[in-house]
Nucleic acid binder design. Structure first.
Length: 278
DNA sequence: TGCCAGGCCAAAT
DNA sequence: ATTTGGCATGGC
């Protein structure tokens, strides 16, 4: 049994919020501890106040995954000042945008259209249990490789609860397995070209591409506009706008932190059901 | 029962 | 260029 290590945290951190805010969908809580996988690397984490303890796993991977280097104080200086946004900021203080492995991020967000976060979580667990591999020391199995999913048929994927999304997951897995996505090369692309490339995959529209870029490619200025975010912005500015317009105005206002602002508003709205006063 | 969910896509205006 | 309808599944 590995010895517990303390991870240095310089700024605000809320581990539980970070793991339950609709970025990863497989984190499991056991008492005060959280289990999460980064690929096939198991992490067992515990937060006590401002202290973060690593009971299992490699410190470097934990720090990178949890983005402990993000300067949240800078984000909070740039955060919007209206009543609703301040409320979201207070509720989500310490929430961090993670750095997730691209394939499992892409695959789980391929499962996301017209699904609630809880359902995406169910699908993720089902895919892991059926087609993933066990990881020593983790209650959760690894997310299946594209090579594994590529050899399945659509019915086997539908058995995970994917519905009409199974076809997209299967086709995406086959393309990725055949080498269509060179993740390390993609990391060097500018955001617009990265988005175009992701959107070549079936089932990847602008929203899913933006989620993958925000949660797996460190594009913190990218704003996924879903039903919640669209409703929030509609209330805040008094009129509806098209997703692309909302994205661009958020980017103009909040710059490199736009994706973070979006995530705080999204999570607060989704978990409380509250929207700004019209 | 009816409605909606971290949308996407092809078809029709 | 923009809007519309269909899509599988599950929970309230």
């Amino acid at each position: 049994m590995p010895r517990v290590k303390r991870l240095e945290v310089s700024g605000p951190l809320n581990l539980a919020l970070t793991l339950t805010s609709g970025q990863v969908f497989h984190a499991v809580r056991e008492g005060a501890r959280w289990h999460v996988l980064v690929g096939r690397e198991p992490l067992e984490l515990e937060q006590r106040g401002s202290e973060l303890w690593l009971h299992r796993g490699r410190p470097r991977i934990a720090r990178h995954f949890l983005s402990l280097d993000h300067d949240l104080e800078k984000l909070y200086e740039a955060f919007p000042g209206d009543r609703y946004s301040r409320e979201a900021l207070a509720a989500c203080h310490g929430l961090r945008i993670v750095r997730q492995p691209p394939w499992e991020c892409l695959a789980t967000f391929l499962a996301s259209p017209l699904k609630k976060v809880e359902h995406i979580r169910q699908i993720s667990f089902s895919m892991r249990a059926r087609y993933g591999q066990p990881v020593a020391g983790s209650p959760v199995q690894a997310f299946p490789d594209p090579e594994r999913l590529a050899e399945l048929d659509e019915a086997s994927l539908r058995a995970c609860g994917l519905g009409f999304r199974a076809k997209n997951v299967l086709e995406a897995a086959r393309r990725v397995a055949s080498g269509a996505m060179d993740w390390e090369a993609l990391r060097r692309l500018p955001t617009s070209r990265l988005r175009e490339t992701l959107m070549e995959l079936p089932g990847v529209g602008r929203k899913v591409a933006n989620c993958v870029m925000l949660f797996a490619f460190e594009r913190l200025d990218v704003v996924p506009v879903d039903t919640w975010v669209a409703r929030i912005v509609e209330r805040l500015r008094g009129r509806a706008g098209r997703p692309l317009t909302l994205e661009r105005s958020a980017l103009r206002r909040f710059g490199r932190w736009a994706g973070y602002v979006q995530q705080y508003l999204f999570h607060h709205a989704r978990t409380t059901g509250k929207l700004p006063e019209p």
